[in-house]
């Protein structure tokens, strides 16, 4: 297997073998996270900085717990308390933190390409893309792949249907790229206002009617609808109408009742998903969260060049 790259910026930085290795590597961390003593000394002496320019309690705490369970020193920096508000440039922020010699910096930023930019302009540290703009979110997709693999055994040949704001979704883009590496197929469902132009050229089937897409799906992946979008660019007329057309309710779920239900969180119950479906036995939402910690333990320790437990 090729050596792991220095940075994890895109899911395409990894080969299929490397993705499978990370999934395998996560398994003992899943066990560790259920032990009474949830701590290993694997990353003792390693420093991890969570640099979050956008609020994301979920991704940030997942990385924080992952690092701490492996005994790394984890520091959280959020844009509101950082120098960014004082006019410091992204490059200066990145270089300043890199000069404090962390082993890993996890970055969440609202601009596409921001993590690539930091990787280019810093030395001696690994950058992990914790979500850059509407571009990529590789650690979420690795988490999803762990979840699906543990449920199915293999993702190859499966059909994942992603529903909602594809246009602004980094998760959707990373899945489209991962699908090619891992051999599953992706359907996307949304009104045209929430689809980027020529999305079909990224290798997916495009649907506007949820019912058309859902039949034959092995996994239904619901994206969070952000209320702000409605206000800023009127991509749909109302939450009510969105729910009517694209909400996952029990009637729709019955069209693919064997499918697993995924959601990157946080869920808007009653908007993109109804509570009865969210609470259904096939809902993997909480597994995703649990697996997220294990996968991030695997990612952090791999980037630090550490062996399995």
């Amino acid at each position: 297997m090729k050596p792991f790259p220095q940075h994890l910026l895109s899911i395409t930085d990894l080969t299929r073998a490397q993705i499978n290795a990370l999934i395998d590597f996560s398994q003992p961390f899943l066990d560790l996270s259920r032990d009474d003593i949830r701590k290993a000394s694997t990353m003792r002496g390693k420093t991890v900085i969570n640099l979050f320019f956008e609020n994301s309690t979920r991704t940030r705490s997942s990385f924080e717990i992952a690092g701490k369970r492996l005994s790394a020193d984890v520091i959280n920096i959020s844009a509101s308390m950082s120098a960014v508000q004082k006019g410091e440039t992204l490059m200066d922020t990145g270089q300043t933190l890199a000069a404090m010699r962390p082993h890993v910096v996890v970055v969440r930023h609202g601009d596409s390409g921001s993590c690539h930019f930091l990787a280019k302009h810093t030395q001696g540290t690994s950058i992990v893309n914790g979500g850059d703009g509407a571009h990529e979110h590789p650690t979420q997709v690795l988490t999803d792949l762990l979840t699906l693999k543990n449920a199915w055994g293999d993702v190859k040949g499966k059909v994942i249907t992603i529903v909602g704001d594809i246009k602004h979704s980094r998760v959707a883009r990373s899945h489209l790229l991962a699908a090619k590496i891992m051999g599953y197929s992706v359907r996307v469902v949304a009104p045209k206002t929430l689809l980027p132009l020529h999305i079909e050229k990224m290798g997916c089937d495009v649907f506007h009617r949820f019912e058309d897409a859902i039949v034959g799906s092995d996994c239904i992946y619901m994206l969070r609808i952000q209320n702000e979008r409605l206000k800023t660019n009127c991509s749909f007329p109302s939450i009510r109408e969105y729910h009517e057309a694209y909400g996952l309710n029990m009637a729709r779920f019955k069209l693919a009742s064997d499918a697993l239900i995924l959601h990157p969180g946080p869920m808007n119950r009653g908007v993109e998903i109804t509570s009865d479906v969210a609470n259904h036995a096939q809902s993997q939402v909480l597994n995703q969260v649990e697996n997220g910690v294990a996968m991030r333990m695997a990612i952090l320790s791999t980037l630090c060049g550490l062996e399995a437990l």
């Binding site: 596409s112 390409g113 703009g133 509407a134 571009h135 980027p196 132009l197 020529h198 050229k201 990224m202």
Partner: peptide, 15 residues
């Protein structure tokens, strides 16, 4: 430009 590249990179495009 708004097109396949903006869609891939997740950037707002100018058609």
């Amino acid at each position: 430009n708004e097109g396949i590249v903006s869609s891939m990179l997740g950037l707002k495009g100018m058609p």
